[in-house]
Design a protein around this nucleic acid. Structure first.
Lengths: 337, 337
DNA sequence: ACTTGGCACTCAAGGCCGCGGAGTGCCAGG
DNA sequence: CCTGGCACTCCGCGGCCTTGAGTGCCAAGT
């Protein structure tokens, strides 16, 4: 039903449309790509492709434009991820290697992705759930309030103020800190729920109430409500892409952490680069946008996800290449630190 | 030269233009505001105002539009900061009071400002320079690398990984930590330069090299390069404002921390609400935009600045009211925690 | 000395028309 | 199954006109 040439035609249409942003006609197609057949032949193929819903014409007597289904076929079977040249790889590597901080790594990653793809970059902070506790610190703020700081082995620092039910003194804090570090150090965050349940037994009865407050905050903040921040960059690139009227909605969506989490979250295989095209992502306000994303992590486990967001007519091979390469190097950086 | 009625006319023009976004003519003016004179009279006044550069007409036979000079006069002499109703104040207060975290306070502030003004909100993190050290923590990452965490009395947590010149053991870290906390606790960040200079004397000779690395990082990161982050929110509101073609530049500017710092930084009196109109802020890409900003802080000292950014034709009285009110409440929240 | 109504003038915005050109679908012949 | 030819469709563009909002100016009124 779809012979090789028809597929080649579809590929050519996608490529041309992506680069010119104008409906592509049969003549232009035979010129730019060296298909050695006549425009008329191409027209027949186009008719077939249109019948099956891979392309449409905006109006009679205009060229063809790929549909979402067309893009889908393109990324699944017609395109190769564009590999990066050694020079580019080296540039990426050195740019990321300059970071001195987890925050800095994430910031640089976002900028890099945005710049490489000329799209909006979206990077999720490395997840807490797979990392383990390196250290817990308690700092008195007032006599009924302490600051809880938790440091993970991925270098992430989580902080939260805790309001206590009763007063607390310096030595009680010392004691509590000792208990916490003794029991929680080196534990996976996912184990914490179980471990924390045993803690009250190790605390002096007089301090039970205050300790309980701290414990519940640990669980609540760091485990259950693991607020995995998503950082966005390159929003300025949206103006080039012709979202025109939907731009407002896209910008709004980009400011909602929850929406971004949903967007990135929905996908199966963590290691592979996945592509969600247009309405495939059912996230509010981001129909008409495509996401190219993948997981990244320090080992072979994915810690979090990153990707780029753009109009459906985006350069998928390049985007996929950039996402894959950046994810790989960020992983290395994180593993090395 | 400018009698009272002419000023009233200018005020009316600004108000109408801001709310309708269309050049305002003499007839519309006498209708909407109850100036009891005829349109012809207004026209004469308009001619005078135009001659002095407060208004212009986009083309012959269109209504008048305020110039930057016109807006300037408006905010300086013709407008009153719009006060907030008690109900609004309470809403602001409770919204901000819900925060449990410095990060959370800043995030909520940004959202709140953006929502109140329907403009882009810009909030600078409370400055380090005026706060003092609450606690310093050193956490081993590898045997040649430690994580330095510094907690300030404003609840801010700064972190940075330090690469050491030599290996370091658990007990050396303990010792170093003790020295650091003994000497730096409670000190103003601005004093640190002097205090740190005395530190090497207190460290065992064998540890000098490693200790020096840590000290220099403390100074470098936390004092000299006090990277005062600026958080932006409500970018989606830019689409409503008709920046039309400059939108790209504005979005780009908003992603550059340095640009934002310059933008907020430039102003004299910290406590007052200041307005920079259009080309008055000579920051790259933000001509055609106005900034309404003020300092905020926990005491009477300003810790940092916040404000809103919008098109020159923005609702200054409301923006100024919102900025002032929010700054006040954020200050209270910070003082209380 | 201001204010006012009247009047002529200007000019952007919008609707209409006609044209050129790109692109298509179809058909008949290779 | 490919190809050239042909008739057809329709978008985009420029020109033209009309409309209406708004102005500037002037002469008369208070």
């Amino acid at each position: 039903m779809l012979d090789d040439r028809k597929l080649a035609v579809l590929r050519a249409i996608v490529e041309d449309y992506v680069s010119t942003n104008e409906p592509v006609g049969s003549r232009a197609l035979v010129d730019r790509h060296n298909l050695d057949v006549s425009p008329a032949t191409i027209r027949n193929d186009m008719a077939a492709l249109e019948e099956q819903g891979f392309i449409v014409q905006p109006h009679t007597s205009a060229g063809r434009v790929p549909t979402e289904k067309g893009y889908r076929l393109f990324v699944d079977r017609l395109s190769a991820v564009r590999p990066f040249s050694p020079a580019e790889r080296r540039a990426i590597e050195t740019f990321l290697a300059g970071a001195y901080d987890l925050d800095d790594v994430v910031m640089r990653t976002v900028r890099l992705l945005a710049q490489l793809t000329r799209q909006v970059a979206v990077v999720q902070y490395p997840s807490l759930t797979r990392s383990s506790v390196r250290h817990i610190e308690l700092v008195p703020l007032t006599d009924r309030r302490v600051l809880l700081v938790l440091i993970t082995d991925t270098g992430r620092v989580e902080q939260r103020a805790v309001d206590l039910p009763g007063q607390i003194g310096e030595e009680s804090i010392m004691q509590l800190r000792a208990v916490l570090n003794a029991c929680l150090d080196g534990r996976r965050l996912t184990e914490l729920t179980a471990v924390v349940a045993d803690l009250p037994a190790r605390v002096a009865p007089a301090e039970q109430a205050n300790a309980a407050a701290v414990f519940s905050v640990i669980l609540e903040t760091l485990v259950e409500r693991h607020e995995e921040r998503v950082v966005v960059g390159g929003a300025a690139n949206l103006t080039a892409a012709d979202f025109s009227r939907g731009l407002h909605e896209v910008l709004e969506a980009l400011e909602e952490q929850v929406v971004l989490m949903r967007l990135l979250g929905e996908s199966g295989d963590q290691a592979a680069v996945t592509v969600r095209i247009g309405s495939e992502n059912d996230v509010q306000g981001l129909h008409g946008a495509s996401l190219v994303a993948t997981g990244y992590g320090s080992g072979d486990q994915a810690l979090a996800r990153l990707g780029v967001l753009g109009p459906t007519r985006m350069d998928y091979p390049t985007a996929m290449g950039a996402v894959r390469a950046v994810a790989r190097y960020v992983g290395q950086i994180l593993a090395g630190s």
